[in-house]
Amino acid sequence: MKLPTLLLSSLLATSIYAADQNASITPADIKMEGVSYIKKLGGTLKSELQEHMTVDPTAVAAFGFCTAKAMEITEEVNKALPDYAKVRRTALKTRNEKNIADATDIAVMESYITAIEAKTFTPQDIKVVEEGNTTRVYKPLVTNGVCLKCHGQNVSKEIQEMITVSYPKDQAMGFKAGDLRGVIVAEIKKTAEK
């Protein structure tokens, strides 16, 4: 699956560094750039999922799309990003073993869960973490009704069988609406040119 040319060109155009690498880059600039990459990946995946759910409300087609194409789309988005940046998805309870969280991811997701429990959470809460030569920008993913068809407490027998076959080590079940499903993370490395 190839991303539309317009999407690819807009990914490249969003780089704040492309215009002037000698400019003074602020934390707000890096956050804005990271959010733009998160929106590219999240928006592409969301629109594809919505299309599949419209065609097949049982979620069988959407599950097939996720299994076959979600990682491929992530790779294509990353190929279109500048060399110093990447974007990925992760969760505390993963379905795909390629999306395992590291210690920083876990700490950020646990802080989101704490905020949800304290009723101080907002889905627009973007977290920025400096880690060595890399700035990570996190956007939370919260479960809603559509998510629950494949990640909820009452998944259909057909979807459950598909999960068992495709993801024998699946952990991404039992969610309720409003739970933290995971995060999308943009990672932006600092380089000498910036």
Results as ranks from 00 to 15, higher is better:
residue 54 T to I: 12
residue 65 F to T: 01
residue 31 K to V: 10
residue 67 T to P: 00
residue 61 A to V: 06
residue 37 Y to F: 15
residue 34 G to Y: 02
residue 31 K to W: 05
residue 55 V to N: 05
residue 38 I to R: 02
residue 58 T to A: 01
residue 52 H to V: 01
residue 55 V to F: 03
residue 52 H to T: 09
residue 39 K to R: 14
residue 36 S to F: 09
residue 66 C to Y: 08
residue 40 K to L: 09
residue 60 V to Y: 04
residue 33 E to H: 05
residue 65 F to N: 03
residue 57 P to A: 05
residue 39 K to G: 11
residue 53 M to A: 11
residue 46 K to W: 09
residue 52 H to A: 13
residue 55 V to Y: 02
residue 39 K to S: 14
residue 64 G to W: 02
residue 59 A to H: 07
residue 34 G to W: 02
residue 47 S to F: 07
residue 52 H to R: 12
residue 33 E to L: 08
residue 59 A to C: 08
residue 32 M to N: 14
residue 72 E to Q: 12
residue 54 T to E: 14
residue 47 S to A: 15
residue 72 E to V: 10
residue 70 A to E: 03
residue 55 V to P: 00
residue 67 T to H: 14
residue 69 K to A: 11
residue 70 A to L: 02
residue 41 L to E: 06
residue 71 M to R: 11
residue 34 G to P: 01
residue 64 G to K: 05
residue 60 V to R: 00
residue 65 F to C: 02
residue 50 Q to P: 02
residue 55 V to L: 10
residue 37 Y to C: 12
residue 35 V to Y: 04
residue 72 E to K: 05
residue 38 I to G: 05
residue 67 T to R: 11
residue 47 S to M: 12
residue 71 M to E: 13
residue 69 K to Q: 12
residue 69 K to M: 08
residue 71 M to H: 10
residue 72 E to W: 00
residue 35 V to G: 05
residue 50 Q to L: 15
residue 45 L to E: 09
residue 68 A to R: 11
residue 70 A to W: 01
residue 39 K to L: 14
residue 50 Q to K: 12
residue 48 E to M: 10
residue 32 M to P: 00
residue 44 T to Y: 08
residue 53 M to Q: 06
residue 64 G to N: 14
residue 50 Q to S: 12
residue 40 K to T: 15
residue 46 K to N: 14
residue 70 A to V: 02
residue 51 E to T: 05
residue 62 A to I: 01
residue 51 E to V: 00
residue 54 T to K: 15
residue 57 P to R: 05
residue 66 C to Q: 06
residue 57 P to S: 03
residue 70 A to Y: 02
residue 68 A to W: 06
residue 51 E to M: 08
residue 33 E to Q: 15
residue 55 V to I: 12
residue 50 Q to C: 07
residue 46 K to G: 15
residue 59 A to S: 15
residue 57 P to N: 06
residue 36 S to A: 15
residue 58 T to C: 04
residue 30 I to Q: 02
residue 38 I to D: 04
residue 49 L to I: 12
residue 37 Y to R: 08
residue 62 A to D: 06
residue 39 K to A: 14
residue 48 E to Q: 09
residue 41 L to P: 08
residue 32 M to V: 03
residue 32 M to Y: 06
residue 35 V to H: 03
residue 45 L to C: 08
residue 40 K to N: 14
residue 58 T to W: 04
residue 72 E to M: 05
residue 41 L to G: 12
residue 47 S to D: 11
residue 56 D to W: 08
residue 52 H to G: 01
residue 46 K to T: 15
residue 54 T to D: 12
residue 62 A to G: 09
residue 45 L to A: 09
residue 69 K to H: 13
residue 34 G to R: 01
residue 56 D to Q: 04
residue 69 K to D: 11
residue 32 M to W: 01
residue 44 T to Q: 08
residue 57 P to T: 02
residue 43 G to V: 08
residue 30 I to M: 10
residue 71 M to A: 15
residue 35 V to E: 14
residue 47 S to C: 06
residue 50 Q to D: 14
residue 58 T to M: 06
residue 66 C to F: 09
residue 40 K to S: 15
residue 71 M to T: 13
residue 63 F to P: 01
residue 31 K to F: 07
residue 68 A to S: 13
residue 52 H to L: 07
residue 65 F to S: 04
residue 44 T to A: 15
residue 43 G to A: 07
residue 52 H to I: 00
residue 70 A to G: 10
residue 58 T to L: 05
residue 39 K to F: 14
residue 43 G to Y: 06
residue 60 V to C: 00
residue 71 M to W: 01
residue 69 K to L: 07
residue 32 M to G: 14
residue 33 E to K: 07
residue 57 P to W: 13
residue 42 G to F: 10
residue 53 M to F: 15
residue 44 T to W: 00
